[in-house]
Design a protein around this nucleic acid. Structure first.
Lengths: 202, 202, 202, 202
DNA sequence: AATGAATGAGAGTTCATTCAT
DNA sequence: AATGAATGAACTCTCATTCAT
């Protein structure tokens, strides 16, 4: 028992090692520079070894994507405890950007890169990726019910807010270096305040 | 004199030919499908010839980037004739997204892709890419002066609006397929209306 | 004693299991599709286990070859009961081709493929493969004694008949698809009749 | 003119060099051991270079096959000058086997190996490979007309003769080493005599 | 007795690039 | 000015095999 448990643990560690290094490579060198050989070099195993843990390159990629979406969802959940719908919505936006900026690699993978979703074909995967958007819509609904937002097409409102935070996130990730570091947090926070504030009617 | 002039002109024509076909290729097939051989095939010269006009592949891409920024700037300029600052600002946003959605590969090159900006190091290039942002700030300034927008940190306002339209643009380009086609234009237009409207105070 | 006997028996069973599945694989998918991993999958053991029973892949193939020769010999024996030498010889030829056509992969292994015989170097293996040829010569000898065939160099006669049936067999196996299916059996039967008939003098 | 001619000649020489070495490899190491890299090693060029002259591996293979069929056809044609139909048919058979034995590599490629014909899809290629068989049938027809052979289904007669010589050829090529060298020619010649003689009625 | 883990060698192919002409 | 010829490096992936346990 102890043995098989240890083996399983070791296997999981190896899988994580591969995923970690693959992710780092994604970050550092971009998608098309992640090769099986480079991953192998990083983990200090032979390329063949990787195939013991993953069917092929797309499986690694697919797994990375799932992990990213999970982490992302969790980050969004962390503000759901807030009672006041308006405050919650604002916190939601800030949490979104914060996650993106703190995990630019994950964010890049999920929302910026080429077409990772090409690998996602089973409906389960789709759920993973829309879960967070549903959360946002629920928040907006609550705000409408509480009179914070005017009666508006929820799809439009959700899309607007998503666009805004996604815009902030991608700019920060891809062009952040163009903005003085000291200025970045200020911009993020105030932009969200400014943009959202206008939408609230009380 | 006449001779060297003609030679220079011919040289420029060749450069343009290469850039044109490279761009078409890039637009039609995306970044990773632009290979030196394919460009050569299109211009009906040998791959080697390209190297007589460009140091290497990145130089071509660098040039393409400049062209993209120019086109982008022009697109933005096309609404500058509008007199009313508020209307102009709205039109600005819509033009921005329209350009991005109609020229997804330009937009991708300019604002989404990883590598290309790595090539931009000389200050001249920077100007090219911030020109449009300056235009936006000028528009906002006008709006403030006309009492359409409250007195706000222009950097915050500009960043907010840019984030919003950039967000819309990238979502449409990268994840547009997740949104029913008939719905896309509706979303774009109404999202801009909804988001910007909140910012105006009159 | 009982223990070591059982162990030996179990060992033999394992060997047979491996050979059986390897043969099935070979028959179903052909030589180059027999991989150690596929054999392992079939026997539901790990690839490594196979190496406890066979030195390497060629040893398995060598064994398979012997089995094929045995089966082949048996098929030939099945007509030896026929009394009349002439009829027996004809039946022999037909049985030969029938076996080949019904077991194309065996036949391929024994008489067409390149490598396998490279492994056969010990005289024992040679016997296995010439046994059938000896049978043919005996049949011819009988025919001569019975006045069916003229007095001829038995080596020449045997070689001639073998060539003929081997020729039919290999054509059918390797190029059979070029011949309309309905036509194949007709060709085989009539060709043997036609070719052999000429050799008989009564 | 002289230049382009020389270039063309050099190109052709390179193509021939590649085909020659590829053919030798086929002979020496068998089909599955012919790799692009090995060919490259032999011709002392890089693997990439081969792709300048051939689209891919199958194109090399296809070319080899055509060359073989051409040579083969020529060899058969060399006896067509013989006037007497019977003598011609005998000579035909002997020429067939002689070609096969003298060019075992070609013969292997055409009639023994796996499925080279898989590459042949255009009708032209098929003609190349059946041309020789048509020649045989014409010879048989002549023999019938001249009363040398009884009125028989030409398909059966042709198939019988082809089987016989093909059988001899393949045995000699694949199992020739089992027959004492001094004995081989004797066997070939006498077997053809013995087998064909029976078929003639005058 | 059995195996999970690991690997070196090698497969076909494509790419940007250089060099001699 | 233009190019044909050539290449090294790299790609993903599969195979038979070994070794420690």
């Amino acid at each position: 028992m102890g043995i098989s448990e240890r083996k399983e643990r070791e296997r999981q560690e190896m899988i994580n090692l591969i995923l970690d290094e693959a992710m780092k490579l994604f970050i550092e060198e971009g998608y098309e520079n992640v090769t099986m050989r480079k991953i192998a070099d990083r983990i200090e195993y032979s390329p063949t070894t990787i195939y013991l843990y993953f069917k092929d390159k797309t499986e690694i990629f697919s797994e990375l994507l799932n992990i990213a979406f999970d982490k992302f969802y969790e980050a969004q959940m962390s503000v759901q405890y807030i009672e006041d719908a308006k405050e919650k919505l604002l916190a939601h936006g800030i949490a979104y950007v914060k996650f993106a900026v703190s995990n630019p690699n994950y964010y890049d993978l999920m929302f910026i890169m080429k077409d990772p979703t090409a690998n996602m074909k089973c409906p389960d995967d789709w759920k993973t990726s829309t879960r967070t958007y549903d959360l946002l819509k629920k928040n907006i609904q609550e705000c409408i019910e509480n009179g914070y937002l005017e009666e508006v097409d929820i799809e439009v409102a959700a899309f607007t807010m998503w666009s805004h935070v996604h815009g902030i996130a991608s700019i920060m990730i891809k062009r952040g270096f163009m903005i003085p570091e000291a200025f970045r947090e200020y911009l993020i926070y105030n932009s969200i305040q400014y943009g959202f504030k206008g939408l609230f009617i009380k």
